[in-house]
Amino acid sequence: MWINKFSPDELDRLLTGPLTSDETPVAGRLLREALTADGITPGVRYFGGGCWVFTVPADGGGELWITDGMVRLGHPVERHTGWTVQHIPDPGAEDPEDGAATVYAAPDDAPFADDTATCAEAVRTRAA
């Protein structure tokens, strides 16, 4: 099993920094590029154990949390398990996922490019 345990600095480089000549963009970088093309700059939140989400303020309050099925952002495209977007009504709560609502969940057979475009559209329509 491929493990995705990056330091915050390394993940930031993979998502936003220059790539070396032998690196290919990770899945989270490609989603971030789709979001920023629409004027949405996501934050990044770390939960420990290699678990990361993008965060975007939600229209009407709370946040949208965006990640893949394994709660990763720095994974290779070929290991992508589908994007998920959840609306978190109170991200500062002791259990922020209490009351969460799924806004988007990728179909099992969605090609990466289609999944990323549909996920970005779901975020775009619900972002503050």
Rank of each mutant, 00 (worst) to 15 (best):
V26M: 06
G49Y: 03
G28D: 02
L35M: 05
V53K: 01
L31F: 05
A27L: 10
G48I: 04
V44Q: 02
R32E: 03
A37S: 13
A37T: 14
T20H: 13
V26P: 03
Y46F: 15
P25C: 02
V53Q: 12
A27R: 10
F47M: 02
Y46W: 12
T20V: 01
R29P: 00
T41C: 10
P18M: 06
T36P: 02
D22I: 09
G50R: 06
A37L: 13
G48F: 11
T36C: 12
G28H: 00
V26A: 09
V44M: 00
R29A: 01
L35Q: 00
R32Y: 07
V26G: 12
E33H: 09
W52Q: 13
G49C: 03
V26W: 05
V44P: 03
L19E: 05
P42F: 05
T41G: 14
S21H: 08
D38R: 15
P18N: 06
G50V: 05
L31T: 09
V44I: 05
C51M: 15
P18A: 06
R29M: 02
T36M: 14
E23G: 03
D38C: 13
R32G: 02
Y46T: 13
L30R: 05
L31Q: 09
T36Q: 15
G28M: 07
L35G: 07
V53N: 11
L30Y: 02
R29H: 03
G49F: 04
T24K: 08
T24C: 11
R29E: 04
D22M: 10
G43Y: 08
G49W: 07
T41S: 15
L30I: 00
D22F: 11
I40E: 08
G43D: 01
D38K: 15
G49V: 11
A27P: 06
G28E: 08
F47T: 08
V26D: 07
R32W: 05
I40T: 13
D38Q: 15
R29T: 04
V44F: 03
F47C: 02
Y46P: 00
V53W: 09
F47A: 10
I40P: 07
P25T: 06
L19W: 07
T24Y: 08
A37D: 15
T36G: 08
I40F: 05
V53C: 01
L31A: 00
R32T: 03
P42A: 10
I40Q: 12
F47H: 04
E33Q: 11
A27F: 12
T36I: 14
R29N: 04
R32C: 08
V53F: 08
P18K: 07
G39K: 14
P18I: 02
